[in-house]
Design a binder for these strands. Structure first.
Lengths: 220, 220
DNA sequence: AGTCAGTTTAAACACCTGTTTAAAATACCG
DNA sequence: CGGTATTTTAAACAGGTGTTTAAACTGACT
């Protein structure tokens, strides 16, 4: 038999040990800033295992992101399309709130999954000259199209160009905030004696981005 | 004489050649992603010159940022304090617009200075585990205090905690947008046949962040 | 039992990293 | 000019990088 059950299970074990260690270090120190030796060291796995199971470091990065995206994107797509198919016009706040449940589900799927994923997303946008942006937009195009459709339904006066810009501003806000959310949560705890977790940050950022997208259009 | 005029001038030449090459590469590929050999190669200068003139790569990064910050921060401080000392209450749009002139001045000071600086800022926030955030907040604290003061004057109902979060969201929007502004400008040119430059992006982002900061406070 | 695909391993590969060294070149000043 | 301080240079340093190799090991099937 080409793929015996135990072989697959054994393989899954080291493969997942590598993925778990990689996502932790990638989120913390970036893709460029993390070496394969750090990853295999934390995973207590041989160095060559990465190239054996994934082929290269670049493919490992894709695998780490895919594990999250495959969990996230169907939930996100259904939440957004549900909004699009409603009879009444949704508010922008509702559109952005559609992200909450799918994102927080990642916490259930993996410990600190939500913030880890958002940190990875932030890393991916600045590290490695945006190859991850290409990867996400080409591999998961439905997420983006559903999103723009939902925003268009909530705010039809917004031109396609203006929406393009504001959605990228929003992307920036979310990704950047979340990629440094640990530091921000620490500062808030010190300066305001207020304990905030990742869902608290999400609750705070949604009114902000909703208002930003809803801003009146500047005349020229 | 310990420091002769010509020595200083000669030193300034290679020193500036290094700074010019470094800021270009840092902005494009990040601090971690740029090697000293790339920098000295582009600057047509010997490799050891970096350590001779700056001591280390970390100090070179600080020097690159300082060259911009020393130009920017006095203009920014005066623009913001001017707003604070006005009798009438400024709008948030005015507060954020106070950034325009000082930022665009960087274009005059150096070719593509504005976008280069903002790209560097974006890099600094994600690269090298936020040591640049520490550097900026400790070396240029007035910029931050003047800014929060101006925002408070424009929107006194906002609690200190809520303002903390929204200003960091704003920081994220600006920095993230600008760090990938080249790519966004390209996409906009292709998809909408619309030529936008860096000042056009700034004009688009200001209504967005102003509306975000002005968002009604969410009840709990 | 032996065979064999799938997996793990230690070792080496070729290359790149920031930094240091000590000699050579340059510019300054009396 | 000679002497001295400053700058530039080639070379080497010690260590880290992703990747490849070939041998060892593992467990299931005939």
């Amino acid at each position: 038999m080409l793929f015996s059950v135990t072989n697959v299970l054994r393989c899954m074990s080291t493969k997942n040990k590598i993925l778990d260690a990689a996502e932790l270090l990638f989120a913390d120190k970036g893709f460029n800033g993390t070496s394969l030796r750090e990853i295999t060291g934390l995973a207590t796995v041989n160095l060559a295992a990465v190239n054996y199971h994934f082929g290269s470091k670049k493919e490992l990065i894709k695998a780490v992101m895919s594990r999250y995206m495959d969990e996230l994107s169907p939930r996100l797509e259904s939440a957004l399309s549900q909004l699009c198919e409603r009879d009444d016009k949704p508010t922008l706040h509702e559109v952005f709130s559609a992200f909450i449940e799918p994102l927080l589900y990642l916490n259930q799927y993996r410990e600190n999954g939500t913030s880890t994923f958002l940190q990875l997303l932030g890393r991916g946008y600045t590290d490695s000259q945006g190859f991850l942006r290409w990867f996400l937009t080409t591999q998961y195009p439905n997420v983006f199209s559903n999103f723009t459709e939902a925003v268009h339904k909530a705010y039809p006066e917004l031109s396609a160009e203006e929406m393009f810009w504001r959605l990228h501003f929003t992307m920036g806000t979310i990704v950047f905030t979340m990629s440094s959310s640990d530091a921000l949560i620490d500062i808030a705890a010190n300066d305001f004696n207020r304990e905030v977790d990742i869902s608290g940050v999400i609750e705070k950022v949604i009114p902000y981005v909703a208002a930003g997208v809803a801003a009146p259009i500047a005349f020229k």
